[in-house]
Amino acid sequence: MPDKCHKADCWFKGPPFLRSKEPLGKSHISETIEDSEICSEVKVNYNEISYNDKNSTTQQPGLMLLLERYSKFERLISSVIWLQRFKTYTYMIGKLLHRSDSPVTGCFTVAERENATIDIVKLIQTDSLSADLCYFKDMMSSGPPPSDRKRLKSPFAKELLQCNRYVVCRVGGRLRQFELQPDHRNPAILPPYHHATKLLIDTVHCEHGHCGSNQVQAYLLQKYWILHLQSAVAKVLRECMPCKIRSARPGKQWMSDMPAVRLCAGNRPFFHSFVDYFGLIKVKLGRSERKRYGVIFTCLSTRAIHLEVAESLDTSAFLQAFFRFVSRRARPAHMYSDNGTNFIAGSKALKDEITN
């Protein structure tokens, strides 16, 4: 194998286009691999990700797929922060290698989270409000305005519609002189049914203890202006499983009709009876302890009870208790019990004796 190491440059160094300084195009990516050994182990698959310059407002398919990938807004923020760090690192490698600056490592900072949130808002607006962004961009351009459009002359309007490199739609108002943070004074506009918007609503809802719709709207309006906010929040809250469980109505069991033996009037007590065991009961005989069991006979009509003591759980002990019950309360017309082995054997023994 050592004599074949010089042929494995693609394995150790990667494809040549990664080391090239020329811009990467689709022609640099090949779907076939000439090396048979690598082809047997590697399956090539690529996704084309379009890139837009800083002044473009068209969709970016690769970044839009990022918004649909995650089910939690916090995970989406973490992914964007890692992409920002990677972008900074590659920029330092290519342009600022002679400087002593080091890439950011460790836990995420507050500034990184805020920048990531702003980038996510930009992507959401680019995905859902691209036509409106192009309209405002044309109105604010430095060139001559179109004949059918009126140029925005207010510097305050430009301040609202521009944020960093991209255009961000924000809500205006007359609170410019009020000492508030820019996000609170002019919240960003978001579409109501975008996937990332739903993640944002769900995050605010969970962070504040699964609060109600009005409270979630109050927290969201501090930084964002979501169109059709009430219906968007209601739709997310309807899908919240902890809220479904907490607000679910308790199940109500439908009770069946009482049996006829429970409704017979005019009969003597214990005419229809039920029998069961309870215990174990320990009794003391001399200096030793013995095990005893209680036998309860209950009348199904009057709910009267009759107690007997059984020395064991076998059939003979049950029959002795049953005969004592019959001697005191007379013979019942029907006797009900569960499927205990002593009850089944006792019933069979009585049937055999009556038959013989």
Rank of each mutant, 00 (worst) to 15 (best):
K244R: 13
K95S: 07
T298N: 08
Y70F: 15
V110G: 06
L180A: 10
Q217N: 14
K158S: 06
I189G: 06
L66Q: 10
I120P: 05
K153A: 06
P332T: 00
Y193V: 08
R75Q: 14
R262V: 01
C134G: 08
E353P: 00
S71W: 10
Y135I: 01
A260K: 15
K153H: 09
L83R: 12
I354G: 03
L307A: 07
N339Q: 10
K7C: 06
L175I: 04
L319C: 06
K198Y: 07
V104L: 15
T298G: 13
R324C: 03
A333T: 00
L97A: 15
F274K: 04
D183I: 14
Q222A: 14
C5F: 12
E289C: 13
P155I: 00
E112P: 12
S213H: 01
I49K: 12
Y277I: 05
M335I: 15
L66A: 07
F73L: 09
N47D: 06
G94E: 06
Q181G: 11
K150P: 08
Y219D: 02
D338A: 11
G294K: 07
V80E: 03
R249E: 09
A8V: 00
S288I: 07
A349I: 02
C169A: 09
K150W: 04
S154E: 00
R69T: 08
Q217M: 15
R170Y: 13
L66H: 08
T203Q: 12
W225D: 05
I81N: 05
T341C: 05
H208A: 08
D3I: 10
R170L: 03
R324M: 03
D183E: 11
V283S: 09
A321K: 08
T298K: 11
L175E: 12
M258G: 02
Y46T: 05
K198N: 14
K137S: 07
P250F: 14
T117Y: 06
Q125F: 08
K95V: 05
A349E: 04
A188Q: 05
M335Q: 02
L76A: 09
M140V: 04
R329C: 05
F270T: 01
F271Q: 07
V42K: 01
K252P: 02
L97Y: 07
F178H: 10
T315H: 03
A345F: 02
G294E: 00
N267V: 02
L63T: 04
M255T: 00
S50Q: 14
T90I: 09
N115I: 02
E207W: 11
M1Y: 12
G346P: 09
G14V: 01
G266P: 06
C169H: 10
S273Y: 13
A116T: 05
K150D: 13
L152E: 00
